[in-house]
């Protein structure tokens, strides 16, 4: 079987001597202006182990400097070279469009942590709480939750606006977790990395109550749309 890492644009420059999963040599299968990067694979399906995940990622990143790269999700196996050829033929136009979209661009991850607020602590219901008091208490809890949500969106929008200005595309989630105000991925031109980093630091200095955690550059995982 073949284990697939990425789709890249041609011409393929000589690949560095990479070893993929199970120490197999990394190879290319080409068609027209694109190529699939893979290695031979035998045995049971790849397991989810951190070392294996990094191995996949290392192969993909080794391609980033010289190619446009569509990273393939971990765990993709094809039966043989014929299946690979069919994949490239059937999805040729989509892969070409995807490669054009990510050309010269990288992905940066941003997470913004903000202080956890204490759980809304409405007064404990009295033993003789009547219906009216109960409803008032529930309403107060709901209003507190809504206020928190409004505040989150307001803060997240302000932070996002600064970073989005430097990006050509983004995906983001506001409050995916009680402690995470914003979780976002930005697709930025490679040459804008330094500017982006400076913007992150400046945002942190201007917003002392939050922590910004930023990693990158990554292959454009969030911007390949499944292809």
């Amino acid at each position: 079987m073949l284990y697939l890492y990425a789709i890249i644009n041609r011409p393929v420059t000589p690949l560095p001597p990479l070893r993929g999963l199970a120490e197999q040599a990394v190879q290319c299968g080409e068609r027209g202006d694109i190529a699939a990067v893979y290695s031979q694979y035998h045995g049971a399906a790849p397991r989810i182990e951190v070392a294996q995940l990094w191995r996949h990622e290392a192969v993909v990143e080794a391609l980033l400097d010289r190619h446009s790269v569509l990273p393939v999700r971990y765990g993709a196996l094809l039966a043989d070279e014929a299946a690979l050829t069919m994949l490239l033929r059937e999805r040729y136009d989509r892969f070409m469009a995807g490669l054009a979209r990510v050309a010269g661009r990288v992905e940066v991850s941003v997470r913004v942590l903000w202080p956890a607020t204490p759980v809304v602590s409405a007064p404990r219901p009295a033993a003789d709480e009547n219906g009216r008091a109960y409803l008032a208490r529930r309403m107060a809890e709901e209003q507190a939750r809504e206020a928190r949500l409004r505040e989150a969106h307001k803060r997240a929008d302000a932070l996002h606006a600064v970073l989005d200005h430097l990006a050509v595309a983004h995906v983001r989630q506001v409050l995916p977790h009680e402690r995470v105000l914003l979780s976002a991925a930005y697709l930025i031109p490679r040459e804008a990395l330094d500017t982006f980093r400076v913007a992150i630091v400046a945002l942190g200095q201007a917003n002392p109550d939050v922590r910004l955690l930023c990693t990158g550059p990554w292959p454009a995982y969030h911007f390949v749309d499944g292809e």
């Binding site: 990622e57 999700r73 971990y74 993709a76 196996l77 990554w218 995982y221 969030h222």
Partner: peptide, 16 residues
């Protein structure tokens, strides 16, 4: 977040 949940999907060959 990326490698298991994003990227090109090869339908029918996801092994996870």
């Amino acid at each position: 977040d990326r490698i298991l949940d994003k990227g090109v999907i090869i339908s029918g060959d996801i092994t996870i």
